[in-house]
């Protein structure tokens, strides 16, 4: 595990306003998650970007003010609560977000469970993206193996077609799948530990930013 990359390390770095690197790393990790999350809650791109930014800024303020206590709830739950209030604001301003978009929003903001689930799904996606990126760029797994995996899994091609395209046997294709699966598992496991948030540890009721947030 890269200790500097853990959420704990990021948070420690965030205490220091001059630590631009910590800020950037934190932003890089959580902003895309929050943007995707807000979109899934039915916000338009602009609003989603804004919500993400506001949420991060707000969180860091609260955190520096000592309001966020990790023992009382997971970081994600905290972020979700901040973002949720912000989204409810946007929704109020726009009448209702559902109608404003002209389609049905997927997540009911009034339902905390589905909001938390939406965030978690987005967080997991972010993590998987990171894992995939790492597999391709840093893992030293043979590119052909990666390609076989992508064709097989991502494009749902039959092993026979993949084998033919790549000039290898179907067995190799399956082998590639197994290797990549093992590698990705390893990466994902490590990233999860860096994020320090595993799906089972959610405690939506535990974390509560201050009430002043609504104002």
């Amino acid at each position: 595990m890269d200790l500097d990359r853990t959420t704990t390390a990021l948070l420690a770095g965030l205490f220091d306003p001059r630590n631009a690197a910590a800020w950037e790393a934190f932003d890089l990790r959580y902003r895309p998650i929050l943007v995707g999350f807000a979109r899934n809650c039915g916000l338009k791109d602009n609003d989603a970007n804004e919500i993400a930014q506001e949420t991060i800024v707000r969180f860091v303020e609260e955190y520096r003010a000592g309001k966020y206590d990790r023992t009382r709830g997971r970081l994600g739950a905290w972020l979700v609560t901040i973002a949720r209030y912000r989204m409810l604001d946007v929704k109020r301003r726009a009448g209702t977000a559902r109608i404003a978009r002209g389609d049905s929003a997927m997540v009911d903001l009034d339902d905390e469970r589905s909001v938390s689930a939406a965030y978690e799904a987005e967080r997991r996606q972010g993590l998987l993206r990171e894992a995939l990126e790492e597999l391709r760029t840093k893992s030293r797994v043979d590119p052909k193996t990666v390609k076989a995996f992508e064709m097989l899994v991502y494009h749902s091609l039959s092993p026979a077609v993949v084998a033919e395209q790549l000039g290898i046997s179907t067995h190799d294709v399956y082998l590639a799948k197994s290797r990549v699966a093992a590698k990705l598992r390893e990466i994902v496991l490590r990233l999860e530990s860096e994020y320090e948030e595993t799906p089972g540890e959610w405690d939506a009721a535990g974390a509560r930013p201050s009430d002043g947030l609504r104002a």
Partner: peptide, 26 residues
């Protein structure tokens, strides 16, 4: 099942550099 999770990732969001690369490679 595990790899199936990546199917969505590969196709999603412009914010994902890796995702777009997956598409390009494919």
């Amino acid at each position: 099942a595990f790899l199936g999770e990546f199917v969505q990732v590969g196709r999603s969001r412009e914010s994902s550099r890796s995702g777009s690369r997956a598409q390009a490679i494919a």
